[in-house]
Amino acid sequence: MKKIKTKINKNQVIFYLSVKIYSLEAIYGAAYVFIDRAYLFLDSCSEKKIAVFLKGKNKLSRKQLEALKGDFLNELLDYAFRIKLSRNSRKLREFIVGQALVSAYGDDEVVQENEIGYEDDPLGIAVSWEDKYGAKPKKAEKENK
């Protein structure tokens, strides 16, 4: 397992994240969660890497800073997964919302359908076999054939 390069100094932990692995959207999400716990700053050190500066709001020990970084990375992973899941289930979500809207909108039509009696038969379903395909040939006619 490759370790994330980390620097710790002046109550601050600095580490670098690959843009290939973590989207900027996920980094913003995780950063937003940590805004009340730490001071955050982002910078780009190259095309593919983002530097994250995490500074404790109170004086933190080296261990606490490491723990803060670990918590941030966990949150980042959580956000990255959530974004991926949201993208994958987008079509299904849209379908469900669409169905909910259609059923909410179509209430009047349902009532109208219920008002139609079975005798009205607007779809022409209530047709007897004979009416549709003619009378059944008699046994004698069948044997002659």
Partner: peptide, 13 residues
């Protein structure tokens, strides 16, 4: 400085 940076980051969301 730190609070200002945090606030800018918050506005990005």
């Amino acid at each position: 400085k730190d609070e200002f940076c945090n606030y800018v980051l918050f506005l990005m969301k």
